[in-house]
Write a protein that binds this DNA or RNA. Structure first.
Lengths: 117, 117
DNA sequence: GAAACATATACCTATATAGGAATATGTCAA
DNA sequence: TTGACATATTCCTATATAGGTATATGTTTC
């Protein structure tokens, strides 16, 4: 089997740095494809292809305006990533190092379940 | 060119659901490989290979103990992901949900006006 | 209609998997 | 040493890119 499709979910879609660059550029507001081509400094077909991937995971929305196509960010598509990764925040937050021990203990009590198996 | 290596950075490493599962399992504490094999329900070589990827991006740390190898989570490796995605949080926060509705309405008016798909 | 412009798609190639099977490496026990 | 156990690595294959180039589609202007 090969790796999952980039369009499988937001995690796969944003694994590509250029696609994160595109989203960052769109954070400033709606933009036509050519703007992104200039900002990224890569070919137009490449940008269009990245935009297609982002569209398939709903990370961007497109709107026609004359001969241009204006792309807009849809940050909500990134929420699963945020939700998943934020639970790990305490891992590096010095402040919570002490709290971790307590929380782990409470969690084990609540679950009332042997931790092994 | 092919896609970037899964070991290129944390973004690529956690794009694979099984690797996120492994990290989630390790969030509960240090575990030997066999535990993860049971939890994930996949073959042992597969788990070892996923662990190798996670090790290369420093998302896990390994420690020898007898014939077992105990893996431990290193959440700090996920910080770049958190830092990147958290800037998009306001996209879906309550306050901006209202704005989204307005924008969507404006968009529909424009699109539904005069032209059919 | 023709030309210019904006964007999307098709086709190509090199490459990096993810999983499965078989095997290698390392450790403990008798 | 031999055997059982725990884990890592190797080899294999099918598949999904990402970028480059050429081309198709759609829009505006003349």
């Amino acid at each position: 089997m090969a790796r999952a499709a980039t369009t499988a979910d937001a995690f796969n879609a944003v694994a590509e740095p250029r696609r994160r660059q595109i989203l960052d550029a769109l954070a400033g507001g709606e933009r036509p494809v050519n703007d992104l081509v200039r900002i990224l400094g890569v070919g137009q077909p490449q940008v269009s292809k990245h935009l297609r991937v982002l569209r398939e995971v709903d990370a961007v929305v497109v709107r026609d305006e004359g001969r241009q196509r204006l792309y807009r960010l849809n940050g909500r598509a990134l929420r699963p990533i945020y939700d998943w990764v934020k639970t790990y925040e305490r891992s590096w937050s010095e402040r919570f190092d002490q709290l971790d021990v307590v929380l782990d203990e409470l969690k084990q009590e609540e679950e009332g379940d042997g931790s092994d198996e």
